[in-house]
Amino acid sequence: MDGIAGIDLVARAQAVAPLVAREADEIERTRRLTPVVVGALIENGLYRALLPRSLDGSEAPPEIFMQMLEEIAKVDASTAWCLGQCSVCAMIAAALDHDTAREIFNTAPGILAWGAVAHEARAVEGGYRVTGRWDFASGARQASWLGAHVRIVDADGGPRKNADGSPELRTIMFPLASAVLHDVWQAIGLAGTGTDSYEVRDLFIPERFAVFRDVPEALRESGPLYRLPTGSTFSLGFAAVSLGIARATLDAAIALARAKHQSLAASAMRDNGAVQGLIGRTEGDLRAARAYLYATAHAMWRDLSATGMFSPAHRSAVRLAATWTIQQSAKVVDTAYHMAGATAVFRSNPFERRFRDMHAITQQIQARDTHFEDVGRIILAGNVEREAR
């Protein structure tokens, strides 16, 4: 994608943002993205950010994808979360034959969603049969197709193994109408994502709808984007969502401090030295987190574009930057929330929802402290390449 096209994708997100902001209360109330928001995201091509150009997608580099999500997250985290989830799911198109990919992504609305890894698919003539239920399917309520990551077993029930002895995993895809959705998403934050569960029973999956994910040898697209594992792309995207939430929350605290005169205080908040210092330090923290995340993404993308290889050092660097950025964003949100005092607890003000959304993100796998342990173990073993730091 050239620079002009990439900038256009971010500009389109900025153009859509006021509409999303107006719909945010309804999204929260109904626990679903509203039809008007979904329509605007589709019309502006935002769901197609990571779809191959051969399918009329943008095939955007990670930094553009991240900026797009930041702009939407500033006005509604649930919308940004679903957009990020479904955009990354669309990367599976690079492993599909073009007719199959067009059937999924070029038939309206052309949105794929999936949940966590679970269950087995049994090999049968011409494909697979599967029964199972999957959780955490953000974006499923807008999708036309669902996916599931499954372990493959042969007709006799024996597990298939890869050459290294690990279980063979595939991503299967099927129309939304083939599944039953279960309304289970009653959550503290990201309420509007509709991150529900879905279930199929004895469903036949033709071979062409069951592909290897994140296996370079299985790719049909040559672009460097599809050498980037979806897990790492999710991490970058969700860290960008966190930055958008943190930016909006801190901006709201700054606006409040400019206007508010605290009870019993001799001066306005904006004239309070402690408040001034806190805002300055917190602004620095947020700018540092964003710079670190984008510098890591930029270095990784530069190397990946040049070599076509996503190395273990890249994986470690992305994991560290994304985890730290999410946790740092949460600290910024907490600071802004506490700075706002009693004002922050009212749903009519721009703090309470963002506080809940941010802390829902910190509970996700991308923000786990164990990632720091993994990276620390690699560093202590001397296996981190300097270029990835």
Rank of each mutant, 00 (worst) to 15 (best):
T370V: 11
V184N: 11
R354F: 13
A259K: 15
A336V: 09
D271S: 10
I254R: 11
L219F: 09
D8M: 06
R29W: 08
R302T: 14
I188Y: 09
D251C: 04
A123L: 14
R354Q: 12
N349G: 12
D164G: 03
V241F: 09
W301Y: 14
T335I: 03
Y198W: 13
F212L: 13
M309Y: 03
P61F: 03
A367N: 07
F174D: 04
D202R: 09
F238L: 13
L293N: 08
L286E: 10
E168N: 04
E387A: 14
V88N: 04
Q327N: 15
A108P: 14
R29A: 15
N349V: 15
L176Q: 10
L250T: 09
A248G: 04
A248H: 02
L55G: 00
L278F: 05
F65N: 01
G194I: 08
G132I: 04
L176N: 01
T343L: 03
A60W: 05
P52G: 09
F209K: 15
S87D: 03
A108I: 02
G237Q: 09
E120I: 08
L264A: 09
L225T: 11
W81V: 02
G231H: 06
D56P: 03
S348H: 06
R227L: 04
N383Q: 13
R290P: 02
G277T: 01
V184H: 01
A140M: 14
G284Y: 03
A322L: 08
